[in-house]
Amino acid sequence: MHSPTASPTASAATSAAAVTEADLRVLVHTFYARVRQDPLLAPLFESHVDDWDAHLETLVDFWLWLVLKKEGFDGSPMPKHARLPGLGWAHFERWLELFHRTTGELQVPALKDTVDAMARRMASTLWQNYQKHNPASAWLRDMPAGLSSYKRSPVFTPANLPAAFKATHSIKAGTWGLLRVHSGALVFTLDVQPPRTLLLDAGEQLVVEPQVPHHVTFVAEGAFQIDFHR
């Protein structure tokens, strides 16, 4: 007989149960001290936070509510982030990078196991909500009428994604691409000024126009494919 193993849900619940209020307070204060020194994130936060002491207490309350189900937080992160001007995926990506670095350095395994996954979901959800509420971030999702598919790319994964796709490139004149994400998550970046980014989850698609510079980056293990039209 095989020994029973804990389900991912049960393991997550066990990790969360081992996290203390003190752990979360140290995390919030350590992480945001780092954010306030970061060249990309600091200007964004400093221009919107008037009272850091109060803001840090709100953030502590948020994480206590999220992880420990403790009452006390009554904020609305979604609409506040949706109103921020000039927000891009690069900000969320950097936020996650600093967050994961902080949880690793704190060396509290139960804390890292619990909050890292929460932070990834939070960044993805906030970014998707931001794009929905900012018309300038609208993207073409359906192929224009009159075009026909003539070629399909291989299925690309992090293991076989060509280096050229990770660097700035474009589709030749007269050819359009329909990028479909089969699994995982992918960031599509238009290499224009200012750059525009879009997070694509499994089941989503995006039209890539001819001669528009762009590149792609996997943010979660997965796969995508491109149908070429003309």
Rank of each mutant, 00 (worst) to 15 (best):
S3A: 14
T5V: 12
S7A: 08
T9I: 14
A12M: 12
A13G: 01
A13C: 00
A17D: 08
H29A: 04
A33G: 15
A33E: 15
R34F: 05
R36G: 11
Q37K: 10
P39I: 04
L40A: 07
E46R: 13
E46H: 08
D50K: 10
A54C: 07
A54F: 09
H55D: 12
L56E: 10
V60G: 04
F62W: 01
W65V: 09
V67T: 03
L68C: 11
E71G: 14
E71N: 14
F73L: 09
F73A: 12
D74W: 01
P77F: 01
K80M: 07
A82K: 07
A82M: 13
R83L: 15
G86M: 09
W89K: 07
A90M: 12
F92Q: 09
L98T: 08
H100C: 03
H100E: 14
E105W: 00
L106K: 03
D116S: 09
A117M: 13
M118Y: 13
A119S: 12
A119E: 05
A119M: 14
R120V: 13
R121I: 00
A123R: 04
A123M: 05
L126H: 05
W127Q: 08
Q131F: 03
N134V: 12
A138Y: 03
R141Y: 00
M143Q: 04
A145W: 02
G146F: 03
F156R: 02
F156I: 09
P158Q: 10
P158M: 13
N160L: 03
L161S: 04
F165Y: 07
A167Q: 15
K172S: 11
A173Q: 11
A173S: 12
G174L: 05
G177Q: 04
L179Y: 02
R180H: 12
A185Y: 03
A185G: 13
L186M: 10
L198P: 02
D201E: 15
P210A: 06
V212A: 06
A220K: 11
I226E: 02
